[in-house]
Computed example of a mutant assay.
Amino acid sequence: MNEELQITGHRPFPLPDKPWVMEQIWDDVLFEHWPVPEEIMEKHIPSQLTLDTYNGKAWIGIVPFWISRMRVRGLPPLPMMKSMNELNVRTYVEYGGRKGVYFFSLDADNFLAVTGARILYFLPYMNADMQVYKAEGIINYESRRKNENNEIGQFKAQYKPASRPFNSQEGSLDEWLTERYCLWVTKGDNVFRGDIHHTKWQLHKASCSIHENTMASFLPGKYLLGEPILHYSPQKHAYFWPLTRE
């Protein structure tokens, strides 16, 4: 099995010297973003990280998708780990001049993957019951977190592409919201970076009907009442590196 990675496309920082450890293929990715005042969002990120903003605004992102392929380097896809549905809630931060993603939650319907990511990546993965299917070009997505509070962690929507594909322009909000190549996590006083590589997103504008959404209940509800900025991408092949402590 050839594990060499062909690096293509623009990256703001070079890849780590270490080999990648995980590959995934993400399908039917929807980016939903709402602007949030900087002073509100800052209350919810670790003090070690600096909030990243675009024209003075922070953004909350809710990103549903499903994973059609997932495997550890050197191994074939394992039957219990090869696919899953995932829904993440995120904002954008930087540390040491390197911009990346900060996750508030990541819901998934694969217990083994949730457990592994919580242990190895310190990420706030949550177990959820999820159903995703496509009919007549529309993706029907429903997720209900497995917890005792039915007012938190519920999401139901239908979405589809609504334009021809395009690549974001350098410096645009489209690029700023989607082109992120690392994640940041904290554990105690320590800060860790997880590098990610993929080619630049091929995006579509999207249409979406949101029927239920309590994924960002830590924010005042008024910030998610407006129309979100929507992007859709049919598929993306991504590679992950182990965490590095800064």
Rank of each mutant, 00 (worst) to 15 (best):
I7Y: 04
T8H: 06
R11T: 10
D17I: 14
I25A: 09
V36K: 00
E38A: 00
M41Q: 00
H44E: 03
Q48D: 01
T50H: 07
W59E: 04
I60T: 04
G61I: 05
I62Y: 07
P64M: 03
M70L: 14
R71H: 08
R73H: 08
G74K: 10
P77G: 04
P79A: 01
P79I: 02
M80P: 07
K82M: 08
L87C: 07
N88G: 05
V89E: 06
R90H: 15
T91M: 09
V93T: 07
G97V: 05
R98H: 14
R98A: 13
R98W: 09
F103N: 05
F103A: 02
L106T: 01
D107G: 01
L112C: 05
L112K: 12
L112F: 15
L112S: 14
A117P: 02
I119A: 08
I119H: 04
Y121S: 05
L123V: 02
L123A: 07
M126S: 10
N127W: 11
A128M: 07
M130D: 01
Q131I: 12
Q131K: 13
E142T: 11
S143D: 02
R144Q: 15
K146R: 15
K146L: 15
N149V: 12
I152H: 01
G153R: 00
F155S: 13
K156W: 14
A157K: 03
K160Y: 11
S163C: 06
Q169C: 11
Q169R: 15
E170V: 11
E170C: 07
S172G: 05
D174R: 08
W176V: 08
T178K: 03
R180C: 05
Y181Q: 06
Y181K: 14
W184K: 05
V185F: 11
G188V: 08
D189C: 03
N190A: 10
D195I: 11
H197A: 12
T199D: 11
K200Q: 15
K200H: 13
W201Q: 01
Q202D: 09
H204L: 10
A206G: 04
C208N: 10
S209W: 14
I210Q: 04
I210G: 01
A216C: 03
G221I: 08
Y223D: 06
Y223F: 15
E227G: 02
Q235C: 14
H237I: 08
A238C: 06
A238Y: 01
W241M: 06
P242V: 13
